[in-house]
Design a protein around this nucleic acid. Structure first.
Length: 126
DNA sequence: TGTTTGACTGGGA
DNA sequence: CTCCCAGCCAAAC
């Protein structure tokens, strides 16, 4: 029984590695509250793809076609705006964050721990 | 069809 | 602190 549960958990990960994974990423990103941020790895972890942070990044790269996906609220694990160069203007990411009350200095989010939003803690199971 | 490249991360030196 | 490396896997060469 325990083995079966574990089996399900491990099977759940590969199951999500499709278009569904991208869709799931966008859903989570849309749930990030204004004034809060999360990381690629946190989203991947929440979706059961603990090592899929790069895929989350790739999903964000393709997210521009969709409206209402606040990609600026996703940063790397230390609070650096690693994706700034993928916006219309490199400074747009910081501008959007600033409008939401998040302070950014040299591409580094200030009080990162305070504004960090962990889907695994804030949301239920995926 | 094989190789390289990242909006990443954790661990080690 | 910095730098390096190995997983990671979809795209783009």
């Amino acid at each position: 029984m325990i083995k079966a549960t574990f089996g399900w958990l491990f099977l759940y990960l590969p199951m999500t590695q499709n278009k569904d994974f991208f869709a799931a990423v966008y859903q989570v990103v849309q749930l990030i509250p204004k004034g809060r941020v999360t990381s690629y790895g946190a989203i991947a972890n929440y979706l059961g793809a603990k090592q899929g942070a790069r895929m989350v990044g790739w999903a964000m790269n393709a997210s521009h076609v969709l409206p209402d996906v606040p990609a600026h609220r996703v940063v790397n694990r230390v609070g650096l705006l690693s994706g700034k160069n993928h916006f219309e203007h490199p400074e747009q990411m910081q501008e959007l964050l600033t409008l939401e009350g998040i302070r950014v200095i040299n591409d580094q989010i200030q009080d990162f721990q305070k504004v960090f939003w962990d889907p695994a803690l804030e949301l239920g199971l995926p």
